[in-house]
Structures are given as C-alpha cells and as structure tokens.
Simulated scan of single mutants.
Amino acid sequence: MSRTAAIPDQDVVARRLLGGSVRRSYEPAVAIDWDAPLDPDKYFLPPEVISLYGTALWEEMTEEQRIELSRQELANVLSVGIWFENLLNRALLRQLLREDPRSSHAHYTLTEMGDECRHMVMFGRVIDRVGARHYRLRAVDRMVWDVLPFFLRGSLLWVAALVGEEIFDALQRRMMTDPRLQPIVAQLMRIHVTEEARHIKFAREGVVRRMQDAGRLERVLTGNLVGIGGPLFRTAFTNPAMYRRAGLDPKRARREARANPHFHEASVFGFAPLAEFLLGNRLLGPIGRLMWRRAGFLP
C-alpha cells in the first residue's frame, strides 16, 4: 500500500478481515492428512531454496543426503516460525492492554493470535511427523526473545510482524505447488499462506496508519532498527546444527551456504515484497538497508 493512499478506519479493516477469517480458516488437526505416508523420493523443501543448492558440497552429496538436508532445513524453518509467532503473540497481548475490548480491531487481533497458536501447533506436529527434531534458541537468544515484546510498540510492532511473516510468505508462495514436495509440507504451506495473507494485510495497514502521524524520530528509529532482521535471519537460516544433523561438516556447510549465489537469490526473492513496502513508506533507513544487504537479502 502506498503511503499516500487513503487509509480505511482500523475497525473497517478489522471487520473485513474478521469476515475473511470466518470464510477461510483452517483447523490443521483435520485439514492435514496426518496419516499419509512420506514419499522417500520427495523433498521437504524444493532443492533450489536449500541453502547448499549448487555448491561444491551439494555436488558431493547423494540424493538421499540432499533429501535429508531438506528435512532438517524444513524443521529449522518451522522452528524459527514458532519463535517468531510466539514473539508476535506476546507483543500483541501487550498491545491489547491499550485497546478497547469492544472494538473490531481488538477482536481481529485476538483472532490473529488464535491463528498463530494453531500455526505453532501445526509446525510442531509437522516437525514430528516428518521424523525430525525441533531446533532450540540458544540461551542468550532466549533472553533477548523474553524482553523483546516490551520494546515492540507502535510502528516497530507492525514492522516486526511483517519481518516475521512476509519473508516466509513470499517463499512459501513460490514453493507450495512444487510437485517434488512431500504432500504434508504442501498442505501446511497452503494453510499458512491463506491465513498469513490476512495477517500481512492487518500489519501493513497498521504501519501505514501509524506513519500518518509518526514523528521523524520514530520513522528513523524504525527504519534502521528493522535492519536487525537481516543478520538474525542469516544466522537462523544457516544454523550449523541442521548441517550436523544431516551428517555434514557444519563449518564447511555454513561457509559454503553463506557464499552461495543461489541461496542469496532465494533470500532476495523472499525479502523483495517487504523491501518494496518499506521503501514505499520510507521505513528502510541507510543503516537498516546496509544490514539487510550485508545479510544477503538485498541485491
């Protein structure tokens, strides 16, 4: 949405999104075929988005090793998704303390939180169903995650929500119809893309509305602090533990992944819609832009 476009009242937007939630929401417990067998020849993520695709190490791997790496990268991505949705829900709960509980805006916020709770359950069940283990936050990262909701307010809350949602959304839209995917993964992605579209709409309009009255300091702070997402995602998406679990040398694998032009291309693709939105709303400052570029998410 352009920063010059007319912004509907937040309750008007929320009522529309509430209607969409009634019409198109899913209960993963019944919407996913949990008993369907896994196909030993299918990937858990398409090869082209796997961090080592096209590298010298990738060429040395057998097809079985490549599929196993895709399993571990899926489990890692879903674990990261759980961390972000947990963070977002706690930040939204704090925001609700300042909302009118009668408003449609508050009601949609609660509806979104319910969606995110189901998504976390779905991610956890899929990690288990594909025969993987979840990935944990390091102790120091857990401490940061514990305090972050206290700082996510105003435009920073909505921008943080978009950082956690839009990159995954863009990549899932690219992947979910790939015939090489395990059916259970494709089902997960279709559900997540459908429901995240409403969450992204909610957060984008929250950003644009906030920017109508934001002062220069808030705009500068938000536009540069958003850059923290770049190195955070770079670290998360090249987690050495997933290479170790796939039977690879984690140091070599991480080094080759971070230098991999194919991985860089996938990262740029995932960030592109959000980058366009942030630039259109003057919310990607020079420091923020530099951090995303150094992390490999900008060309």
Rank of each mutant, 00 (worst) to 15 (best):
A6E: 15
A6K: 14
A6H: 13
I7N: 11
I7Y: 11
I7F: 11
I7G: 09
I7R: 15
P8F: 12
D9S: 11
D9T: 10
D9F: 12
Q10M: 15
D11S: 15
D11R: 13
V12R: 11
V12H: 09
V12Y: 07
V12N: 05
V12P: 01
V13T: 15
A14L: 10
A14N: 07
A14E: 08
R16L: 08
R16G: 09
R16F: 07
L17K: 04
L17Q: 05
L18W: 05
L18A: 06
L18P: 03
G19W: 07
G19S: 10
G19E: 13
G20Y: 03
G20C: 02
S21V: 06
V22A: 12
R23T: 11
R23A: 15
R24P: 00
R24D: 09
R24S: 08
R24A: 10
S25F: 07
S25Y: 05
Y26P: 08
Y26T: 04
Y26V: 10
E27P: 00
E27Y: 04
P28C: 02
P28H: 03
P28W: 03
A29F: 01
A29C: 00
V30G: 00
V30R: 08
V30S: 04
V30T: 13
A31L: 02
A31V: 05
A31N: 03
A31M: 02
A31T: 11
I32M: 08
I32L: 05
I32C: 07
D33W: 00
D33L: 01
D33E: 09
W34E: 03
W34H: 02
W34A: 02
A36Y: 00
P37L: 12
P37F: 15
P37D: 13
